[in-house]
């Protein structure tokens, strides 16, 4: 097993009666953006704090390039992180915030100006951070994460508060960090962002990783072998395909059905031979959102409660 990147193994942590982490294990490899997703309370933020040595665990280990965070000398040169973009003194300028961080690692002020350029904050760097929009604070946080040119980058919800331009920039930026050979862990609740950005996905639920797979594999698994068919003659098509051994399900549109158990070309042949008109036969492709919802259905902690539960 390679030690590069982040390796989290069997993290367990209890806060009073709440089991925040229950055997959380996964790894983040260099050269790929790993998305870290899951419902509220799944343990994403706790896991990130544990990786950074901020929270202690009851059991398990979290290693960065083979070492625990607290054992790293000048840690920002190994791991750059952004947990909370709002965690700034509002009266300090963006540049001064980066400057004290640079000083804490023995880095030159030159690095500060470099990362300011990198995230596109040069025009506001000498203004007080209290006046920054959330999107600007996110960029400042990214700049802070990159100060030490680290091989591991970990960002908690970096898309939060970003305008559409910022989101496009962030996606490309994250991919470029991975392309430079860095291990990148990004938590997000925006599945669509992960689909465009992450190559690998860790899905957290109830304090553990309930999926840890390449994004392409997750989508393929959620898509199954289903085929979407659009036809004005739904009952006729249904009987023809069921007779041929397929399972047919209705869709929300009344001229569509979803067929499983038969490949698309076979469906075209069967419908054509039986004279059933159809306007579309296509492989059903799940979105990452579908895959995610399927995986987390069991693990969602905060479901809507029924009135009886409330009144109890």
């Amino acid at each position: 097993m390679s030690a590069a990147g982040i390796v989290v193994a069997g993290l367990r942590k209890r806060y009073g009666a709440v089991l925040a982490l229950d055997g959380m294990s996964f790894s983040v490899r260099p050269g790929v953006v790993t998305g870290f997703v899951g419902p509220n309370g799944a343990g994403k933020s706790t896991t990130m704090r544990v990786i950074l040595g901020l929270d202690a665990v009851d059991e398990g280990t979290a290693l960065i390039n083979g070492k625990p965070y607290r054992g790293l000398r000048r840690p920002l040169n190994h791991v750059g992180s952004l947990l909370d973009a709002a965690a700034l003194h509002p009266g300090r300028t963006g540049r001064a915030h980066l400057l004290w961080l640079a000083r804490s690692q023995g880095l030159a002020a030159r690095r500060v100006d470099h990362v300011i350029e990198l995230v596109g904050l040069a025009s506001v760097a000498r203004r007080r951070a209290g006046g920054y929009s959330l999107g600007m604070r996110q960029r400042l946080g990214i700049a802070a994460a990159l100060l030490g040119d680290p091989s591991v980058v970990m960002l908690d919800e970096p898309f939060n508060g970003m305008d559409p331009d910022g989101i496009v920039w962030m996606r490309g930026f994250l991919r470029s960090l991975a392309a430079q050979g860095r291990a990148v862990l990004v938590s997000s609740h925006l599945m669509s962002e992960m689909q465009d950005t992450a190559g690998h996905l860790v899905v957290a639920g109830r304090g553990r990783a309930i999926a840890d797979a390449a994004v392409a594999d997750l989508i393929a698994a959620a898509s199954g072998d289903r085929v979407a068919v659009r036809t004005p003659a739904v009952p006729h098509a249904r009987s023809v395909l069921t007779y041929a051994g397929a399972t047919v399900a209705s869709t929300r549109e009344n001229d569509g059905i979803t067929v499983s158990g038969l490949p698309a070309d076979r469906i075209v042949t069967l419908l054509g031979r039986s004279g059933v008109p159809f306007s579309e036969v296509s492989a059903h492709r799940a979105t990452l959102e579908d895959a995610y919802l399927e995986l987390t259905r069991e693990a969602v902690e905060f479901r809507a409660v029924t009135p009886t539960e409330v009144s109890r």
Partner: peptide
């Protein structure tokens, strides 16, 4: 106290884990 107020204490302790 100011760092606890903004949450910046976490940044400080990330930069200086000792």
């Amino acid at each position: 106290g100011g760092e606890y107020g903004t949450g910046m204490i976490r940044t400080t302790l990330t930069a200086t884990p000792r």
